[in-house]
């Protein structure tokens, strides 16, 4: 039996491992549903715009899917992090670092596509929920102006963003598996360095320079050229993949 299995190519084993991981991690989809349910809830109270006169004041409560998107990305982080640490199933006796790595990446890519699909339908879903629960609801001009290309763009971008976040989390997970307790110290060290950077940056350079989530996300979000955006996003994902591979290649698979 073992001989037959060992005769199979790496890709075949990786594919089987991929299917096995998808199946045995099916509970993660339940987590996704739960997190997205929370996201839908938070989306209903995103922000308020108000204007009016002496006689009346109109408050427009904006239902914005950003909290939903954020919750979904958090799910992706959890999956990337947990996949990198999951190396204990008996099936993996015949696997090696490459098949473990390849199957993890493939699972993450499937997750990213699932996220892309769920995000396409987030608008109609919110519209349906609002229709059912709110009497004074209107879809909004920007929402109604969305075209097929907008939805296609939404699918592509959210899928890539999810993949980027997932690949980043996977890389961190690999570092955690590889360095164990040193990883905790390393994380604390990075936080301390970031705080020091902020303090020293403001002290010596001034407020003009800062590195934060906003600046980091603007690197992708503010890019208006599709080709450059693709280079940026694919390059970032590839970097994480490469770093993850560097991290995993010497690891014990059944660690």
């Amino acid at each position: 039996m073992n001989t037959i299995i060992h005769d199979e190519s790496k890709m075949t084993v990786a594919y089987r491992q991929f299917k096995d991981k998808l199946y045995h991690n099916a509970f993660s989809f339940t987590q996704l549903i739960a997190l997205q349910a929370l996201g839908y809830l938070f989306s209903f109270n995103a922000s308020t715009t108000a204007s009016g006169s002496d006689y009346y004041y109109v408050y427009i409560q904006n239902i914005n899917p950003i909290p939903l998107f954020t919750m979904t990305l958090i799910w992706m982080i959890i999956q990337g992090f947990s996949l990198s640490g999951e190396k204990k199933r008996e099936y993996y006796l015949v696997s090696n670092n490459f098949t473990a790595y390849f199957s993890d990446i493939a699972v993450l890519e499937v997750y990213a596509v699932v996220i892309g699909i769920t995000m396409i339908f987030s608008g109609p879903m919110l519209q349906m929920l609002a229709n059912l629960s709110l009497g004074t609801f209107q879809p909004g001009a920007a929402y109604e102006a969305m075209t097929f290309l907008n939805y296609l763009s939404l699918f592509v971008t959210t899928t890539f963003y999810a993949l980027l976040i997932g690949a980043g989390a996977y890389f961190l997970g690999i570092l955690r598996v590889r360095y164990q307790s040193f990883f905790v110290f390393g994380s604390i060290g990075v936080v301390v360095l970031l705080i020091l950077w902020s303090v020293l940056g403001i002290r010596f350079i001034g407020p003009g320079i800062s590195i934060g989530f906003e600046e980091l996300s603007n690197f992708y979000l503010q890019e208006s050229n599709i080709l450059i955006w693709l280079v940026k996003i694919i390059g970032s994902i590839a970097t994480f993949y490469f770093l993850s591979w560097i991290g995993i290649r010497n690891l014990e698979v059944n660690h």
């Binding site: 995103a46 009346y56 004041y57 408050y59 239902i63 899917p65 609801f137 971008t157």
Partner: peptide, 17 residues
């Protein structure tokens, strides 16, 4: 004064570039 509340749905635009 009348406080009138209306709910409006915004699309997921931050994912667009």
């Amino acid at each position: 004064r009348s406080d009138i509340q209306l709910y409006s749905l915004w699309p997921l635009l931050q994912a667009f570039q």
